[in-house]
Amino acid sequence: MLIGLGIVHIVLTLFAGPFLDGFTRKYIKANLAHSREGPLVGPWQTFVDLFKLLGKEDLFTAGGIISLQMLAPLVALSSALVASLMVPLSGIAPLGAQSDMIVFLYTIGLGAVAVVIGAMATGSPYAYAGSLREISLYLIVEPVLMLAMLGAMALSRSLHLEDQLRWHYAQGFSLPMLIGAVAVFVALQAQFGKLPFDIAEAEQEVISGPFIEISGPRLALLRWFFLSRQFVFAGLFCTVFLPWGLTAYPVVNLLITLVKIFVVYSLIGLIDAVMPRVRIDQALRVYFAVLIIALLGAVLAFVSA
């Protein structure tokens, strides 16, 4: 049964990510914010892009390390998919009993590392600049997520995401978790790679940074990794930090989670559409403030636990 659920998770992550992205692109960004028509195929545009990229010529850099360029997108996408198996989208996760919060954080981090190594393996200075921005941001965003999850751990006395979800549902509203949820929501904007924190890619500054030398199917896989990662993070946020709506039926739970994810995507897409990109030093300052808030939440959680 867990294997079946695992297949559901993988398929869902692979397809819901691009769909939700396409949705926000068309209806939130183009129609609502930009006063323009947007893609003619509506929410399916991201799939069209990915499919088109899958068939394009695959370019490697002559000065780079081809094997790592080749492996990086594959490892990245699979890490996001494995991480999706750890998120209890329907109350239970296929790998929920075999992993915990720390494993989850590191698994999803593995993808980012793969992207960075793949980017550096191309040898392009823009890729380096973008990757290092990504890591600099990661250094301050990751603790936000960690602290919020520490709060969840302290309250639920378990590092397992499923236990945290169940505890939270049984317990109902709690202030530390609310603070954690706020902090994580702000962190999501960076984890999604959306404006105002799409600093790593920043076409206007470092020409898409890590992606600059990556093309064709590998670019598709990398895009897919980012889209999957967005979905996984949104799933984590909606289950662990907004656990209301847990029933005894996994299918119902899954549907409820998807509705919540949809709302979260729309909000993030809206912020993305109406914000300019901040500079990396400004972003660090913003997230430091968020970090303090998250720390407050964690301290509250440890005190009240």
Partner: peptide, 16 residues
């Protein structure tokens, strides 16, 4: 200028 700093809302509206 809006586009350069990633503020595509300003970009689209200003050109409209």
């Amino acid at each position: 200028a809006c586009h350069i700093v990633g503020f595509d809302y300003g970009f689209m509206q200003s050109w409209r």
